[in-house]
């Protein structure tokens, strides 16, 4: 096996992994940017997405539909949670959010267990992306190519949404100065609920897409929330570009770390985070913490 093709294939592998991490991290960072709260339940929404995707794909037989339905339901639940439980807490210190969303993690995780059971559920790769292709004479799963592509498309879509649309403008304005936006006659609460829903929906999309690779299981939430936290810390809290950059960095460390130092792959991720924090305490593209 030649080194160059091998490296290229591993890079593609890392990019597909980066796409999943990006879906996970970008929602968390958007929510933080707008509301200054950390959504501990983010990993649980990712897991919810995987299970919703499983059921939607089974019931309809259509993976594309699952990709749409899963995030919408999860986003709706997220928005409802924001309205019902988080809104009364905005005057409290930020640790209250962390703890309420931790409570939600327990509740939602248990509801998922009650609805879908404790067994890991296998989700079939959609027919269009089943099988493998040969890149530089190396076999490579088509589905991973699709993931990398989906990551690029969604990243561009979010970027354009934030930069070009009126709602995107409101989101950016709210993250800079919510009171001013409120004074100009915008219902800031609605923006907050919307972005919380969108953030949870993006996590769920990541979950739907990850399910064919890793199966939908109850252990997903714990790993996902740690990954999401690491990405947000490395990228800088509240920075969209930061989360993209961090997702790619972490994915490369995970993929190459697993290959070259299998015993230290996990530690490598934390060392990367530590390095970033020592050099830039606020994260790569974040404001000073």
């Amino acid at each position: 096996m030649d080194l160059l093709p091998f490296l290229l294939v591993q890079c593609l592998n890392a990019l597909s992994q980066a796409a999943l991490l990006f879906f996970l991290g970008v929602g968390l960072t958007l929510i933080f940017g707008i509301m200054r709260i950390v959504n501990f339940a983010h990993g649980t929404f990712y897991m919810l997405g995987a299970f919703l995707g499983y059921s939607a794909a089974r019931l309809s037989g259509n993976f594309w539909l699952a990709m749409i339905v899963g995030p919408i339901i999860a986003g709706g639940i997220g928005a409802a949670f924001e309205v019902g439980l988080l809104r009364p807490l905005y005057r409290r210190d930020d640790s209250a959010f962390l703890m309420v969303t931790f409570g939600l993690t327990l509740v939602l995780g248990d509801i998922i267990r009650l609805l879908w059971g404790v067994d890991a559920l296998q989700v079939a790769v959609p027919d269009a992306f089943a099988g493998i292709v040969f890149l530089f004479d190396e076999p490579f799963p088509v589905y991973r190519l699709f993931l990398a592509g989906a990551g690029v498309v969604v990243a561009i879509a979010i970027w354009q949404f934030l930069e070009r649309t009126r709602l995107g403008l409101l989101i950016r304005a709210t993250s800079q100065n919510a009171e001013m936006v409120h004074a100009l006659g915008v219902d800031v609460n609605l923006v907050r609920s919307g972005i919380f829903g969108i953030g949870c929906g993006l996590a769920a999309l990541g979950g739907v897409l990850a399910a064919p690779l890793v199966t939908a299981s109850l252990g997903m939430a714990g790993n996902a929330i740690i990954d999401a936290f690491v990405i947000v810390i490395i990228g800088g809290m509240g920075s969209f570009l930061g989360s993209l950059l961090a997702a790619v960095l972490v994915a490369f460390v995970q993929v190459f770390g697993t290959y070259y130092f299998p015993d230290f792959a996990l530690a490598a991720m934390y060392l990367l985070m530590l390095l970033v924090l020592v050099v830039r305490p606020g994260g790569l593209l974040g404001k000073e913490a």
């Binding site: 933080f32 740690i226 810390i233 996990l266 924090l277 020592v278 913490a289």
Partner: peptide, 21 residues
């Protein structure tokens, strides 16, 4: 090195590191 919620996340990450070890 971090403050506020970043501190919380770092403590969590450290505990997970020990878990992995």
């Amino acid at each position: 090195l971090a403050k506020g919620v970043s501190f919380s996340m770092l403590t969590l990450a450290f505990a997970q590191l020990l878990y992995a070890v």
